[in-house]
């Protein structure tokens, strides 16, 4: 179980950090393995910040990140690298998701090499994963600007799936893709969650996508998590007025 306990994050800007912006306030959230948890909220509500904190790309100002019972919050980076394999993050913008200087293959091999997969097995692994994520192998020697956003996102998935992560943070992974590609990738993610028992935190502002994907849903506004419950409950009888409003707006 990936657990975020009372996470707060403040950004300080300006001279000597005089301007303080509270991005996340006291947010608690848990993701079980095999479960897809949706995180809804408008732009700037702190949901992406929370996602980055979950994989320790950002350090929380206070609170704890607990990964399968181990508190990794203040773990030094060297020690934490072991845990990196277990949780990965996928971002929103496919056009900058991979380094434009390298081919898709080179970016994918970056993760293979990190795990230390021997050269002889790389080809087989690439074939396996690319079949799983539907990445055509004849495009892997192209550069990111020569393939579509959907293909880049598939390459990103290949790169991340090689780690066999237990938890995945998906920061609006499909919001920049066109609808048919979006549906494919969502299906693929959902299948992956159930098949390999991966816990996913699905960050989105798209209620329809959340409704289709998630087992549980949390709503976030102005840095706080307002409500947290099963998807069914949340969509049928939301308690918070904000969620009600969101549902009304989308209806």
């Amino acid at each position: 179980m990936l657990e975020l306990v009372k996470i707060s994050k403040e950004f300080r800007t300006g001279f000597l950090g005089r301007n303080v912006k509270q991005a996340v306030i006291d947010a608690s959230l848990r993701v079980e393995r095999g479960e897809i948890v949706g995180l809804i909220g408008e732009s700037g509500c702190g949901k992406s910040t929370l996602g980055r904190i979950a994989v320790k790309l950002l350090m929380p100002s206070s609170g704890h990140i607990i990964l399968d019972g181990a508190d990794v919050t203040d773990m030094p980076e060297k020690q934490f690298r072991e845990f990196r394999r277990q949780m990965q993050i996928i971002f929103q913008h496919p056009e900058t998701a991979l380094d434009p200087q390298y081919t898709l293959l080179e970016s994918i091999l970056e993760s293979f090499n990190k795990i230390g997969i021997p050269e002889a097995e790389q080809k087989g692994l690439l074939e396996n994963i690319s079949e799983e994520v539907n990445l055509p192998l004849d495009i892997v020697d192209r550069h990111p600007n020569q393939v579509s956003g959907g293909e880049i996102q598939r390459a990103v998935l290949t790169r991340v799936f090689a780690f066999e992560p237990r938890y995945l943070i998906l920061d609006e992974p499909t919001s920049m893709l066109d609808v048919s590609v979006q549906a494919h990738i969502l299906q693929l993610l959902k299948r992956k969650a159930k098949k390999d028992n991966v816990g996913m935190l699905f960050i989105s502002h798209d209620l329809e996508v959340i409704r289709a994907m998630c087992d549980r849903v949390a709503v976030m506004k102005e840095g706080k998590i307002l409500e947290d419950g099963s998807a069914k409950e949340m969509f049928q009888s939301p308690k918070s007025s904000y969620m009600k409003q969101l549902l009304e707006n989308s209806a």
Partner: peptide
Amino acid sequence: EMQFIESTRALGYSDSYILHKH
């Protein structure tokens, strides 16, 4: 600020690797 920097860091690569390669 580009995302591949963050995602490479998320893979567990060090700052010196990211600085050099990316």
